[in-house]
Write a protein that binds this DNA or RNA. Structure first.
Length: 181
DNA sequence: GGGGCGATCTTCT
DNA sequence: GAAGATCGCCCCT
């Protein structure tokens, strides 16, 4: 398939919903993402280059992996103009047993950015790696998904921007979306 | 099902 | 010294 991440972060965040991501064959369908733009106080690229965010200033289509709250990892896809898309949840469909071993549980395998990276074995060593080759595999979606949008989670700056996207009705979301009217 | 809290790294004030 | 794109455990309901 032709796959480009050289688009705006919001556009990429929507495109990813329903696609399948595998890391060394482990993973599943992406059901929840968040967009972070360059001109976005909540984005790690907002304040410019630091020691840890260099991948966001590299080419689109690479990984940006950073440590969260000192002990978890979060996995992003770098997009156009120093934006990024945070992967927040997957449906744990492929190699589920491996994910259960890594997580030490049979539940909550990929519903949350820190849990997702643990289940897929992602860490600092994947930071800045291109996503169009090993160990990453992206599989196109078979159908057009119903996408729901809402405020991003766990941030205080620009919290009003509705840049969290999810597969409507999925049981694998990290949190429910605010109900629509 | 949900609130409070501790763990621990990096940046910024 | 504080805050942050988090999570698991404990306790309560």
């Amino acid at each position: 398939m032709t796959l480009t991440f050289d688009l705006g972060a919001v556009e990429v965040a929507r495109l990813l919903i329903g696609m399948t991501l595998l890391v060394d064959g482990v993973g599943g369908m992406i059901v929840e993402t968040e967009a972070y733009e360059r001109d976005d106080p909540a984005s790690h690229s907002f304040r410019g280059l630091t020691k840890t965010n260099g991948a966001m200033f590299g080419p689109p289509g690479c990984a940006y992996v950073y440590r969260s709250y000192g002990l978890h990892w979060c996995f992003n896809i770098v997009t156009r103009n120093h934006g990024a898309v945070l992967l927040r949840a997957l449906a744990p469909e492929h190699e589920r047993t491996i994910m259960e071993v890594r997580r030490g549980s049979t539940r909550h395998l990929c519903d949350g950015p820190g849990r997702l990276t643990q289940a897929l074995g992602l860490s600092k060593i994947h930071d800045a790696l291109p996503l169009d080759g090993a160990p990453f595999t992206f599989v196109a979606k078979a159908v057009t998904p119903e996408i729901i949008a809402g405020p991003r989670i766990g941030i205080t700056k620009a919290a009003e921007r509705p840049w969290r996207f999810g597969l409507d009705g999925s049981p694998f979301l990290s949190r429910p979306f605010p109900t629509r009217g």
